[in-house]
Design a protein around this nucleic acid. Structure first.
Lengths: 213, 213
DNA sequence: ATTATATGTGACACGGTGTCATATTACAAG
DNA sequence: CTTGTAATATGACACCGTGTCACATATAAT
C-alpha cells in the first residue's frame, strides 16, 4: 500500500507518477520494469519514490487495484439483465469483462499483467470478487449470490457457489491470458470463454448417458 | 537450451550443477534465485556457467524439462486402466499426477514453480501434453486421443478433444497451485480436482432442466 | 521569528549480471 | 615426447538497478 504521504500529494503529481508507471508497465513486465525509468517518466526523485511506495511491487499492485474493473458490479448487472440464469449471466459477464480489458486504453498494461500472471497477481486481480460474493453491494443491497438462480443448479450451499464462481473467474482469466498470448481478437476470446462456460454448464458428457448418475 | 559443452561435461559435474541449481530454486523463485548462489553450491566458476547456459532462465527451463513428469505416459496408463471412460480416466490421472508432484523429493522446486507459474512456465510444463495428444507413444503406438472413449462425449473432432484436454490440464495446474498456496494436503487437492472434473463432466446445471438444449 | 513536522533529493553502498582476456586442459598429429 | 590446436575454466571487471541515508527545502503552528 502507498504511504499517507502519497495520498497527501497534489493530484497533478500523483497523476504524473501513476501515468509514468503505467507507461513503464505497458512496456515491461513487473520484473523488467525499472524504478529508474518510472521516476524519469514522472520527473520525481528516487528518494521521493521510496517515500510513497515500499518498492516496485507495492506500486504495481496499487495500480492493479486502481485499474481493476469493478467486477462485482459487472457481475450483478449481467445477472440482473439475464434474470439470474446461470449460463446466460456468466456469458454476458464474460463478454463484457473481456471487452473491458482488451479494449481498454490500458491494454498494454493488462497484456503484460496477464502474460505474467502468477498466483499473487491472480489473487490481486480476482481477490475482491470471491471475497465480495457474499457481501452486499452498497447500491441496492443485492449480493451476487442472491441474483443467481440457484434452483436450476446442482449447487446449493453458499460455499459451493463461492467455489464455483472462483473457478469461473480463473477460467475467464486463463482465457484472457491465452487470448493475449495467441493474439486473438476480442470476439474470438469471447467465443472461447462461451464455449468453456457451455462445457461447464451442461457437461461434456452426452445427456442420454448422463442419467444414471 | 544448454550448450553442447554442458552435455560434454562429466556426469559428476553436470549433476553437481543440477543439484546446486535445484537447491537454489527450491528456496527461491526464478527471479529471486541468484547465479552467484548456484555456482557457489556447485563449485563452478561464473565464467563456466555462462558457457553452459544462456542465463538463469535457460537453466530453469532446462530443469523443468528434466523433472517434468511424463504426463502423456501417465495419461495413457490411466485411460487404459479405466477402459477409456472420460471422467474416470482423468480423475485417476489427476490423482496420480498430483501425488507425483506433491510427494516428489523435488517438492520444494515444484512448489515455487507452481506459485510463480505464469504463461511461459505453464507452456513449458504442459507443453508436451497438448502437442503430443495426437502423437503416438513409442511404446505401443497408442495415441491419447485414441484411448479416450469419445462416443459418450458431446465432443467429436480431434481439435475439440485437444482443446478440452488443454482445458483440463490448466484446471489441474490451477488446482495444484491452489493446493500449494493454501497448503492443502495431497488428499484434499485430489478431492478438489475430482470435484471440478465432476462439474465439467456432468455440468453444474440440473439434469431435468438440461434436456431442452 | 522560531520550532516542529512533512516532504524532496541525489550520492552512495551493495549485490547481481554478463563479458572478456587470459589460463589451463585435452587431445591429435608428427 | 612435443608441438599445436581446439575445448574448457576462471575471476576480475564494467554495467545497472535497488534501497538508504544524511541533508535540504517547504509548510504550518505558536
Amino acid at each position: 500500500m502507498p504511504t499517507q504521504t502519497f495520498f497527501n500529494l497534489s493530484e497533478e503529481k500523483r497523476e504524473r507518477l501513476i501515468s509514468g508507471a503505467m507507461k513503464e508497465f505497458a512496456h515491461y513486465c513487473l520484473n523488467d520494469a525499472s524504478i529508474a525509468n518510472i521516476i524519469k517518466n514522472a520527473n520525481i526523485s528516487r528518494g521521493s519514490f521510496y517515500q510513497y511506495f515500499d518498492g516496485k511491487s507495492d506500486l504495481y499492485f496499487y495500480l492493479i487495484g486502481i485499474f481493476r474493473r469493478n467486477t462485482t458490479q459487472l457481475m450483478l448487472q449481467s445477472f440482473q439483465e439475464k434474470d439470474g440464469v446461470f449460463i446466460e449471466g456468466y456469458q454476458l459477464f464474460g463478454d463484457k469483462y473481456i471487452q473491458s480489458i482488451m479494449e481498454s486504453e490500458k491494454v498494454g498494461f493488462f497484456k503484460h499483467m496477464y502474460l505474467n500472471m502468477n498466483h499473487q497477481i491472480s489473487q490481486q486481480v480476482g481477490g475482491d470478487i470471491v471475497s465480495s460474493i457474499k457481501a452486499a453491494m452498497p447500491k441496492d443491497g443485492k449480493r451476487v449470490i442472491d441474483v443467481i438462480k440457484r434452483d436450476t443448479l446442482r449447487i446449493q450451499t453458499d460455499e459451493e457457489l463461492r467455489e464455483l464462481t472462483k473457478f469461473i473467474i480463473n477460467m475467464l482469466n486463463q482465457t484472457i491470458m491465452e487470448g493475449f498470448s495467441k493474439e486473438r481478437s476480442i470476439k474470438d476470446t469471447q467465443i472461447e470463454f462461451r464455449k468453456k462456460m457451455d462445457w461447464l454448464t451442461f457437461g461434456v458428457m452426452k445427456k442420454e448417458l448422463n442419467e444414471g448418475e
